[in-house]
Computed example of a mutant assay.
Amino acid sequence: MRVEIWTDIACPWCYVGKARFDKALEAFPHRDQVEVVHRSFELDPGRAKDDIQPVLAMLTKKYGMSEAQAQAGEENLGAQAAAEGLEYRTRDRDHGNTFDMHRLLHLAKEQGRQSELIQAFYTANFAEERSVFSEGDERLIELAVAAGLDADAARAVLADPTAYAADVRADEREAAQLGANGVPFFVLDRKYGVSGAQPAEVFAQALTEAWGERSPLKLIDEGGAQACGPDGCAVPQH
């Protein structure tokens, strides 16, 4: 069974939602037969790469809330994250463009290190003092290496703005086609969609139901049809 998860590194609910989903998956009896693929979604795709600002300033401008309201929201998120065993800095984080991180996640997917890299990005963005935005490419390369990627390969991707760009845009188009207008957005075997950072119990139910509806292969064999197998190909007898 395949689970596709559309997320953005700048999305705190994606950070919390991943922890909740991971908890449900860990307890799922068929977890070893579940493939998890992380898909790209930018909450702020029009933001310039060098347009970096404090999270509170971004929230007050984008949602028209006061700084006190924005800070209260961050405190609530911190409590939600703590309940899942996650660290979360409620103050002095910044916000910026995540396109390059998504491009690196596609590189990581090819190398089988996508889960490790997205967790490294989440932890760096939400729990660590150093920024994933203001320190430039070398900070992203450092995180990529920590997740098991080759430094030169990561550096080459960041040096070429076209590398994996089409893959990111394809993910975003597909999200729109599926009706996802926010993240996290989970799609299970292209049969079930789960929107938002739901409780682990909801993810557990979705996994169980999606697994239960997996259709066994229905074999149609009228007999006598030619086929190839481990012992070679049948030769028609006349």
Rank of each mutant, 00 (worst) to 15 (best):
L107E: 07
K109Q: 12
Q111I: 04
S115Y: 07
S115A: 15
E116K: 04
L117F: 11
I118E: 10
I118P: 06
Q119W: 11
A120Y: 09
F121H: 14
F121E: 09
F121N: 12
F121S: 13
Y122L: 10
T123F: 04
T123V: 15
N125R: 15
F126N: 05
A127R: 06
E128C: 09
E129G: 11
E129H: 09
R130V: 09
F133T: 13
F133M: 07
F133L: 11
D137W: 11
R139N: 05
L140M: 08
L140P: 06
E142T: 09
A144Q: 07
A146C: 00
A147K: 03
G148E: 09
L149H: 02
D150W: 03
A151F: 02
A153I: 05
A153K: 09
A154L: 14
V157R: 06
L158V: 14
A159N: 12
A159Y: 02
A159C: 05
P161M: 14
P161N: 13
T162L: 11
A163K: 07
A163Y: 10
A163R: 12
A165W: 00
V168H: 08
R169D: 14
R169T: 15
A170V: 01
E172K: 07
E172L: 03
R173L: 15
R173N: 15
E174W: 05
A176H: 10
L178V: 04
L178Y: 11
L178H: 09
L178P: 12
G179W: 12
A180T: 03
A180P: 03
F185L: 02
F185R: 04
F185E: 07
F186G: 03
F186L: 08
R190Y: 08
R190L: 11
K191W: 04
Y192M: 13
G193K: 09
G193H: 01
S195T: 15
S195L: 14
G196A: 11
G196P: 15
A197Y: 02
A197F: 00
A197D: 02
P199W: 09
E201Y: 00
V202H: 01
F203E: 10
F203G: 05
L207W: 00
T208V: 04
A210P: 06
W211S: 00
W211M: 00
P216T: 10
